[in-house]
Deep mutational scan, measured.
Amino acid sequence: LQLFIKTLTGKTFTVEMEPSDTIENLKAKIQDKEGIPPDQQRLIFAGKQLEDGRTLSDYNIQKESTLHLVL
Rank of each mutant, 00 (worst) to 15 (best):
L1G: 06
L1S: 05
L1F: 12
L1W: 11
L1K: 04
L1M: 10
L1V: 07
Q2M: 05
Q2W: 14
Q2I: 13
Q2V: 13
Q2L: 06
Q2F: 13
L3C: 02
L3E: 00
L3M: 09
L3W: 01
L3P: 01
L3Q: 00
L3N: 00
F4W: 07
F4L: 10
F4R: 04
I5R: 00
I5D: 00
K6E: 10
K6D: 05
K6P: 01
T7D: 11
L8W: 07
L8M: 06
L8D: 13
T9R: 07
G10D: 13
K11E: 09
K11Y: 05
K11I: 12
T12Y: 13
T12W: 11
F13K: 01
T14V: 07
T14I: 12
T14F: 08
T14D: 08
T14W: 12
V15C: 03
V15A: 02
V15P: 00
V15H: 02
E16H: 11
E16P: 09
M17Y: 09
M17Q: 03
M17I: 10
M17H: 06
M17E: 01
E18H: 09
E18C: 04
E18N: 12
P19F: 12
P19M: 13
P19H: 14
P19I: 12
P19S: 11
P19G: 14
S20T: 13
S20Q: 13
S20E: 11
S20I: 13
S20M: 11
S20N: 07
D21K: 05
D21A: 11
D21R: 05
D21F: 05
D21E: 05
T22K: 10
T22P: 05
T22S: 12
T22M: 10
I23A: 02
I23S: 02
I23G: 01
E24W: 15
E24Q: 14
E24R: 15
N25E: 05
N25C: 04
N25Y: 12
L26S: 00
L26N: 00
L26D: 00
L26R: 00
K27P: 00
K27E: 01
K27A: 01
K27R: 08
K27T: 02
K27Q: 02
A28K: 06
A28N: 15
A28F: 10
A28I: 13
A28R: 09
K29T: 07
K29A: 11
K29Y: 14
K29G: 03
K29L: 05
I30V: 12
I30F: 01
I30A: 01
I30M: 02
Q31R: 07
Q31K: 12
Q31A: 09
Q31S: 09
D32Y: 08
D32M: 08
D32E: 12
K33C: 03
K33N: 12
K33A: 11
K33Q: 13
K33R: 11
K33D: 07
E34N: 06
E34P: 01
G35I: 02
G35W: 04
G35L: 07
I36A: 09
I36T: 14
I36V: 09
P37H: 13
P37D: 11
P37F: 15
P38Y: 13
P38V: 13
P38F: 13
D39Q: 13
D39E: 12
D39C: 04
D39R: 08
D39K: 10
Q40L: 10
Q40C: 04
Q40M: 09
Q40W: 09
Q40G: 12
Q41I: 08
Q41N: 03
Q41E: 01
R42Q: 14
R42L: 05
R42C: 04
L43F: 06
L43S: 00
L43Q: 00
L43A: 01
L43P: 01
I44D: 10
I44W: 05
I44V: 09
I44H: 14
I44M: 10
I44S: 14
F45E: 02
F45C: 02
F45T: 02
F45K: 02
F45I: 06
F45L: 07
F45W: 13
A46H: 07
A46F: 05
A46E: 15
G47Y: 09
G47S: 06
G47R: 04
G47D: 05
G47E: 14
K48F: 15
K48N: 13
K48E: 14
K48G: 08
K48H: 08
Q49F: 15
L50H: 00
L50N: 00
L50Q: 00
L50Y: 01
L50G: 01
L50D: 00
L50C: 02
E51Y: 05
E51Q: 08
D52S: 14
D52K: 04
D52I: 15
D52Q: 06
D52F: 09
G53M: 11
G53N: 15
G53S: 10
R54H: 09
R54E: 05
R54F: 12
T55A: 14
T55W: 04
T55M: 14
T55F: 06
L56E: 00
L56D: 00
L56V: 07
L56A: 06
L56P: 03
S57G: 12
S57V: 13
S57A: 09
S57R: 11
S57I: 10
S57L: 10
D58F: 12
D58W: 09
D58C: 02
Y59A: 03
Y59E: 05
N60Y: 06
N60L: 03
I61K: 02
I61A: 03
I61T: 06
I61N: 02
I61R: 02
Q62D: 13
Q62M: 15
Q62V: 08
K63F: 15
K63A: 15
K63E: 13
K63V: 10
E64G: 14
S65T: 13
S65F: 07
T66Q: 06
T66R: 05
T66S: 07
T66H: 10
L67K: 00
L67R: 01
L67P: 04
L67W: 02
L67S: 02
L67C: 01
H68Q: 10
H68Y: 08
H68M: 08
H68A: 05
H68L: 05
H68G: 10
L69V: 11
V70R: 08
V70A: 13
V70G: 07
V70W: 09
L71N: 14
